[in-house]
Simulated assay, not measured.
Amino acid sequence: MKYKLLSLLLISLSFCPTLFAQGRDHIKSQIERWGECKNVALTLTGGDVALYGKNGWAASSVPTGMSDALNELNGDDRLIDDVQLTEEGSWLILYGDNGVRWYDIPSGLEDKIRIMNDNDEVITSITFNDLGDWIIISQENISASSTGIYSWIQEGLDKFGALWAAHLTDDGIVLCYSEGYRFYGNVPDRLKNKLEETNLDVYRVKFLSDGAYFIADREGGFAYYF
């Protein structure tokens, strides 16, 4: 039986898309060739994506709908800001100020995205997992799939300042605040140690239970292990 994260709480390469089935080695080689990377989506078994520049991307083994959407946004010269992909093939692309493309995301998250869009809120971070947990952050508001997760987020605001970004897996959470981080569940020590020692003013964090991680600031600095 799956348990939601709430239960745990309570106890080619000049801005052209590329797509190959070569695992993380492919996006790693693209990042090394680009010399930059602003964001990624990583999975254990379901594919990977890397973003660079305004709308450049590379991917391996991702759902066709996701690669088609990335290709379309690249062709339309839209800013691609964030990508999410789960082990079961659900995905989301955040572009522009609050544009979102998605497939099979939690219904509560879909409803909240539509409300924020109607209110013209600038969305900065969206994360969700295969268990129905989600967090969405705009410049005006923070929402989560449960009061437990939301309360945990709020506790960090008092200590660490504004919440910039969040990342969920099926068994772990990292919250990235302006002045620090909060961790819950299965967050690799390798990532925790990197966040403690880095000089980057970290704005994006992605991780997996196998120890893979990616961090980046808003100025083009980044670090990764995968």
Rank of each mutant, 00 (worst) to 15 (best):
V187D: 04
F20V: 10
F128G: 06
R190P: 00
Y184E: 14
D171Y: 04
A59G: 11
E197W: 00
G180V: 06
T45G: 00
D171H: 10
T169I: 02
S146A: 09
G161T: 04
L191S: 04
F128E: 10
L79F: 12
G161S: 08
E196N: 15
V174Q: 07
G53W: 10
S90W: 02
K38Q: 12
G180S: 10
Q84L: 09
T86F: 05
L6T: 14
N193V: 09
G132I: 03
T147H: 02
E155V: 00
E219A: 15
G56S: 10
G96K: 05
T18W: 06
F183G: 01
Y177W: 08
S138R: 11
F222K: 00
I142A: 04
S151R: 15
Q154M: 12
W152L: 01
C37I: 03
E72M: 14
H167N: 15
D82S: 15
T198S: 11
G35S: 10
D210K: 01
L85G: 03
G161L: 06
F20G: 01
G65Q: 06
L85Q: 08
E140T: 09
Q139S: 13
A58Y: 03
G185I: 06
Y181P: 02
K192P: 03
L42S: 03
G56R: 09
D111K: 12
N193W: 12
V83L: 01
P63M: 13
L175T: 05
K28C: 02
Q30S: 09
